[in-house]
Amino acid sequence: YSQTKLAEEVGFFVPLKGKDALVVSLMRLHASGPFGTADARLLRDMAPAVIGLARLRWPALPADEPAATKQDEAIAPVNEFERAHIWKSLSLTPREKHVVDLVLQGHSTESIARAMRIVPGTVKVHRRNIYRKLKIKSQAGLFARFVEIIDARIR
């Protein structure tokens, strides 16, 4: 993001036919700072409306009606029990699992630090350990791993 002058980006995934998706992306300029906890909650609550508006705006999108219900279940909020089950096999500590959950909800490092009442440096250490354990290199890799696990779970 250093060359784009963006602080953070959030994407809404609109499921399409097969394994395709349309992504509606929102970005914050570096001058505005990253999304805060309240912003993340608002964006999460807005997701169904944004997805619905995308479908209204682009009615020719190839929606796969029977599969859409199954995909919608996959991207629905995951409860505490399901999260524990999802990450159980990955040998993460409870704190690392909490960091993963917050990252996947769209929280920035600073927002995670505030939520967990720790310093941002500690969040960065947790993230580094998570990435090492999961053999990934980025937040995108973490999201991809989560999608793989969820996809395997619903099959």
Rank of each mutant, 00 (worst) to 15 (best):
Y1A: 09
L92K: 05
H30I: 13
R57W: 14
K17L: 15
V10Q: 10
K19R: 14
I51A: 06
A67Y: 04
A38V: 13
R41F: 05
L104H: 06
R145N: 11
S91V: 15
A60L: 12
H126A: 02
V99H: 02
G18I: 03
L102T: 04
D64C: 01
A60P: 14
K97A: 15
A76H: 01
L92Y: 04
K70Y: 15
I136T: 06
W87A: 02
G33V: 02
L90W: 03
L92D: 06
A144D: 04
N129E: 13
G141Y: 06
A84V: 08
L104R: 01
F146V: 04
L53Y: 07
I86H: 04
L90V: 10
T37W: 13
L56W: 07
S2H: 13
A21N: 12
P94R: 00
F35M: 03
L61A: 05
D20C: 05
K97P: 10
P77M: 03
E65P: 15
L16I: 06
H107G: 04
R41E: 09
V119T: 14
L61T: 07
G18C: 08
T93H: 00
L16Y: 03
D39Q: 09
K135I: 02
E8Q: 11
D64R: 01
H85C: 07
S89A: 08
Q71V: 12
V103N: 05
A115F: 08
A152P: 09
I75V: 11
A7C: 10
K133R: 03
S108F: 02
A31C: 03
R145K: 12
H107S: 11
E148A: 00
G11R: 04
H107I: 01
K135Q: 15
I136K: 04
V123Q: 04
A84L: 09
Y131T: 07
P94N: 02
A40V: 10
S32E: 15
